[in-house]
């Protein structure tokens, strides 16, 4: 139950980064099926250099979300990402808990 002023709060960090002139993307868990490590609504924020704060899983798919976020920052168009055991990328990045999540990645403009 973190205070919104908390240094770890992803959306406060996104605001601060943008104020500093950095490019920022916000990734949000928008749907989960089965067992998922982070609830719907959780955020991961990423800057143009690949720095990140927050989480959308227990560390399982953050790497993939960060590289997609860099694409989104470059192209400006939001993306919907899906991760899970049924996903064709499961052998590469996936959720070991067996769940499935959708992550929406958008640029802060």
């Amino acid at each position: 139950m973190s205070d919104v002023e908390d240094i770890q709060d992803p959306l406060s960090i996104a605001e601060k980064w943008k104020d500093e002139g950095r490019d920022v993307a916000i990734a949000t868990v928008v749907q989960t099926w089965g067992s998922a490590p982070r609830p719907v609504g959780s955020h991961l924020v990423i800057d143009g250099e690949g720095n990140f704060e927050g989480s959308v899983s227990g560390g399982c798919v953050e790497g993939a979300v960060i590289s997609e976020a860099l694409d989104v920052i470059g192209a400006g168009k939001p993306k919907m990402l899906e991760f899970g055991v049924a996903d064709e990328t499961a052998w590469r990045v996936g959720l070991s808990c067996g769940g499935k999540i959708s992550v929406y990645v958008e640029r802060l403009v």
């Binding site: 919104v4 605001e15 929406y104 802060l108």
Partner: peptide, 24 residues
């Protein structure tokens, strides 16, 4: 997400008011 909208969202959260961000 629009930056001004994010600033407003953070201000509402800091003021302890409930808020919903709606995205199509």
């Amino acid at each position: 997400m629009d930056f001004q909208l994010l600033q407003k969202l953070n201000a509402e959260r800091a003021a302890r008011r409930a808020v919903i961000h709606v995205t199509g």
